[in-house]
Write a protein that binds this DNA or RNA. Structure first.
Length: 157
DNA sequence: GCCAACGTTGGC
DNA sequence: GCCAACGTTGGC
């Protein structure tokens, strides 16, 4: 089992939007970066825990917990000419972009970016690395434990 | 709106 | 394969 952090713009899909979805599940559509795509395809397993991170918004930070709910499969938006994520070079026979489904687990208090940066225990967290632009990053088990227990006050994982 | 950082594209 | 130009991310 591996742990992940996935960024979403709350104007698009917030943690509350995720919770309100049928089954609490949403396809993680719109990833157009090969590294992030490959993580979904090669490294994620159904059941992996995910920090749901709000980005490009007034209060960026971790807003809740989700889990990986499917294997990677072709992202439908790449075939949709009306979608901002349309890719003319992708066809159903040779899809370029994949997504997993992500399922709501719980909403937490917002752990803001500044708060994350202030933790010595999180100094090496991938998402905090200088210049990081990946929308999906791995979280080390010790970092996951620290955030869930010390910052969120959760008893269990 | 600004800007740093970095990925992608395309000419050569 | 190099690399400049361009586009995107995302915090501030």
């Amino acid at each position: 089992m591996r742990y992940w952090l996935m960024k979403s713009e709350p104007d698009d899909v917030s943690i509350d939007d995720l919770a309100a979805r049928p089954g609490g599940t949403v396809p993680w559509y719109g990833v157009r970066n090969y590294q992030a795509r490959n993580l979904m395809r090669d490294a994620m397993t159904v059941g992996d825990p995910v920090f749901f991170y709000h980005s490009s918004c007034a209060e960026p930070g971790i807003a809740g917990i989700a889990r990986v709910a499917s294997a990677a499969y072709p992202d439908a938006t790449q075939f949709d000419a009306t979608s901002p994520y349309y890719d003319a070079k992708a066809t159903p026979e040779t899809p370029r972009w994949l997504n997993v489904d992500v399922q709501f687990v719980r909403k937490t208090r917002l752990i803001g970016l500044a708060e994350l940066r202030a933790q010595a225990e999180l100094a090496n967290m991938r998402v905090l690395a200088r210049g990081n632009r990946l929308s999906i990053t791995e979280v080390e088990p010790a970092e996951w434990r620290y955030i869930t227990r010390e910052l969120m006050g959760l008893r269990e994982d």
